[in-house]
Design a binder for these strands. Sequence first.
DNA 1: CTGAAAGCGCTTACAG
DNA 2: CTGAAAGCGCTTACAG
Lengths: 346, 346
Amino acid sequence: MVSRPAGDGKTGTRSVTLATVARAAGVSLPTVSKVINGRPDVAPETREAIARLLAEYGYVPRAVKRSVARQRILDLVFDSLGSAYSMEIINGVTAAAAEAGYDTVVGLTPNDPHGVQWASRLSQSGRAGVIVVTSAITAEQVAQFRRAGVPLVVIDPVDVPEGVPSIGATNWLGGLTATEHLLGLGHRRVAIIGGRQNALCARARLHGYHAALDAARIEPDAALVRHGDFGFELAFEHALALLDLPERPTGIFAASDFQAFGVVEAARVRGLRVPEDVSVVGFDDLSISRWAAPPLTTVHQPLVKMGRVACQTLLAMAAGERLESQRVELATHLVARESTAPPRAG
Amino acid sequence: MVSRPAGDGKTGTRSVTLATVARAAGVSLPTVSKVINGRPDVAPETREAIARLLAEYGYVPRAVKRSVARQRILDLVFDSLGSAYSMEIINGVTAAAAEAGYDTVVGLTPNDPHGVQWASRLSQSGRAGVIVVTSAITAEQVAQFRRAGVPLVVIDPVDVPEGVPSIGATNWLGGLTATEHLLGLGHRRVAIIGGRQNALCARARLHGYHAALDAARIEPDAALVRHGDFGFELAFEHALALLDLPERPTGIFAASDFQAFGVVEAARVRGLRVPEDVSVVGFDDLSISRWAAPPLTTVHQPLVKMGRVACQTLLAMAAGERLESQRVELATHLVARESTAPPRAG
DNA sequence: CTGAAAGCGCTTACAG
DNA sequence: CTGAAAGCGCTTACAG
């Protein structure tokens, strides 16, 4: 990494032009121009040296800078695309972006091993910024975005990266509320099927569960704590195992709605009724969950709103505003529907 | 509209520069530059005259032309965003686009009354083309896209616009298959809850239903034919009414999975079991439908594939290739799961 | 309010 | 393969 005046386009320093890079590379202006335009007549070593400098200096052609300024596009990337969860985030982000006159490119987190080119590619194509959802993002990537001057916001990150604004929900409180709901109905054997173990939000929900048991002075039972991956299949397997326990739980808190569907299906397969034989609480409140049979009791997480807030935060950063807070947690609340009921006197 | 050499950037003519417009307006170069950059020091009449010429000549700054050429973005627009249906289309389009090195902007169909600016805005921002999903599109809009040179493809359109490639599924055959499945199980009173009545695909599914009854020599009963809007709520109401009929149907074909969930919930509310008391077939096979309780029997529609094909078709058009066919219908097939069974001997 | 002149960032054609 | 020179499209500072 070459040391250079940290030209972020705002603080004093001259903006990076072809000449800047040419000087740094010790070559002439035309040579740098050729590299940028992919002309063949440049020696491989020269090309590579220049390419590296270009990236390090975060060079953006003036042409691009200008056209890009009026382009108004932001990127929204997921580690996987296809679930109702993603759909709701997309919904919120695109709506807030459209209101501000921005278009939203939707895609997957690029999987180049080091992700070296991602930030500079985005900066070169003049994106206003990037919102990264439920993905792991490395400190190195964060540094690249910062260097390239591309604002970055994360939603439900695996870990909250240092210095990056992150949007989430009150997961701990949500986990607490879900569990308290079951306890309040009179359940004493309450199981949890947690989400992906390394995800921050999953850990928070699990701690909420434990806090509720604790407050109710119920001894936690390791046999009732299972770790899923937020998906249906694995939760289905876990639920089968839980329901086959000699002393089976009467209430199950699943850390996502999809996992809750897995529990409901497992109950059906075992000939148990929901909520008569077993109560199920989910987490997310996807729009489909009120259409489940039975309509699912779940912790509402304002996904559309989270998308909106992420977008607004990003645009504020792009506009150079100071953020009030690096971490926003939007409120969750329990939506009691028909998948929970008091346990049968047993 | 001033007559001018139709400079589309390809056929011979010099490209339109600031100088072209300045000459036409009879002003100097700097004056045109000021108008473009919104500087205040231009007389209102001058400004307006220049602005008009700029539009007529379709002036695009060289800066923009260049950055746009390497931009590779296409647009994917929906009439509404949020359902699992949209998610699967997004999934297919973004995947195929990414493979071809394109980014996908996801958004809603703009609602400016005449949509006059839409096509030209897209062409000016250099989009490779637009995929329009489940929306009504007017002949006037189609003409505008053609004029602006922006390729257009539709998925499941309300009507197939003349001369526009459209992607769909074998909806008639799907409706036939779904109904035959119920008849094959021994059902004789089979109801349908159709989709939005004006949508092409809904009409095809309804005709498939009638064709199956016809082939089985079953007299259609108008009381068993209901028109929904593809959504849960209205289907729920219709299903309640159907189940309250003196001689209620033993099988119900819903023209979407969401509608099928409405039927399942209506049955639950009426204390009827699925499939023991009433069989339900959906249409779409959303990924969530195999996780429903009970897992839903439905007609699989390859939504992800449809998105892929739409994207490939669009990129072929953008590349100037001739299309094999203006209308592509991808195959549907029945997925028998647990929401259907023979009727009880009654 | 307008435009002649200078200048900026970049590209192109070509000599070496 | 490289770069000095010419040139292009556009913007800026300023005289009128």
